[in-house]
């Protein structure tokens, strides 16, 4: 069996591009973007000292975090405390495997890609829960418990919304889902599913208005109260990588992935290279738009209370997503 086939070399190149070239740097850029947008919304200046327009600020921050002392509380569980920050970073990097950046530009076109995404994304709850448990601090434990409850609650409406996408595409391959949207994006066919998916993505990424996990007024730092140095930095990095990934998933599932709106009607035939470049830019433009929405919401909408959060998840979003799924299934069945 030939191991290094051209396909494998291509998927390795896409993998390196997606992780080292895109996802890791994007986290740094999003941290900078968040601080600048927050400053703009609050009528401040924001970081502008390090480098031109403060562009080097994230690198200065990472350098500072690396040079800080790494403290492990003595009464905590040392092994879990060290393993916990690895989990969200690894799961965040793993999700890019099945997301197509362009026509054929995907690390692995799995026929169960959608299930793979849900499975890997739901693993990140382990990192947060382990961190809360291993720190042996009351704030950390409460933060970890809240996070586990919140993330599993919003995984159900998210799963049902994605199931309605699978209905429309009649495939679980992410590449097929994107190709089914060449003409009609699923936001037009399944608007309720899109809204549910977007809301659940905010909750899964632990972003405002769902950031009770680290509600600083009541829980200090939440699950990462006892973390310092780069271990804290890893949680921070993972949070922003999850924002980027949530934006990529929203674009992929509901906003046509790398397709321009109604592209088959007006887009002329392009050479494969030109088409690839165009695909990547269209996809990244959509992703950047959704990252901006994530930041915009954070600095505009206040945080929920925990009971409101659970009520929204269980008694509004979940029944709505199930009914939405049934309606789409019935309509598709009737029109054959």
């Amino acid at each position: 069996m030939e191991l290094f086939t051209p396909e494998l070399i291509k998927s390795i190149l896409v993998m390196l591009g997606a992780t080292l070239g895109f996802l890791l740097p994007s986290a740094a850029v999003v941290v900078y973007a968040e601080r600048r947008v927050a400053a703009f919304i609050q009528n401040r200046v924001g970081p502008n000292r390090v480098g031109p327009f403060g562009l080097l600020q994230p690198f200065a921050d990472v350098l500072k975090l690396i040079m800080k002392e790494d403290v492990t509380p003595t009464q905590g569980n040392r092994m879990l405390h060290t393993l916990a920050p690895l989990v969200p970073v690894v799961t965040a990097l793993m999700t890019v495997a099945v997301i197509p950046f362009g026509d054929g530009l995907v690390v692995a076109n799995l026929n169960v890609g959608v299930l793979y995404l849900l499975a890997v994304a739901s693993l990140s709850v382990y990192g947060v829960t382990m961190a809360g448990w291993a720190s042996n601090s009351k704030y950390s434990l409460l933060g970890g418990l809240r996070s586990a409850a919140q993330m599993v609650s919003y995984e159900l409406p998210m799963g049902m919304a994605v199931a309605s996408v699978a209905l429309l595409a009649s495939s679980l391959s992410v590449v097929d889902v994107v190709n089914a949207q060449a003409m009609w994006w699923f936001i037009f066919l399944n608007p309720i599913g899109a809204v549910i998916f977007i809301v659940a993505s905010f909750a899964e990424a632990n972003r405002t208005p769902f950031d009770l996990v680290e509600a600083e007024q009541e829980l200090v730092g939440g699950f990462h109260t006892e973390y310092s140095s780069m271990k804290f930095g890893m949680f921070f990095l993972a949070e922003y990588m999850h924002v980027v990934i949530a934006s990529m998933l929203i674009s992929t599932f509901f906003f046509g992935g790398y397709h321009l709106p109604f592209a088959p009607l007006w887009l002329p035939e392009l050479s494969p290279f030109l088409k690839g470049v165009l695909d990547i830019h269209v996809f990244l433009a959509k992703t950047v738009f959704w990252i901006f929405v994530f930041i915009w919401v954070r600095w505009t909408i206040p945080r929920f209370k925990f009971d409101q959060l659970m009520r929204l998840g269980w008694s509004r979003l979940l029944p709505l997503s199930i009914v939405n799924f049934m309606v789409i299934a019935i309509v598709l069945y009737l029109i054959g």
Partner: peptide, 20 residues
């Protein structure tokens, strides 16, 4: 490729943590 990506992700995460 997914196995390779898992390896890459673990190495990256461990490297960042050991560095500090």
């Amino acid at each position: 490729p997914i196995l390779l990506l898992l390896g890459l992700a673990v190495v990256l995460a461990l490297a960042l943590m050991l560095l500090s």
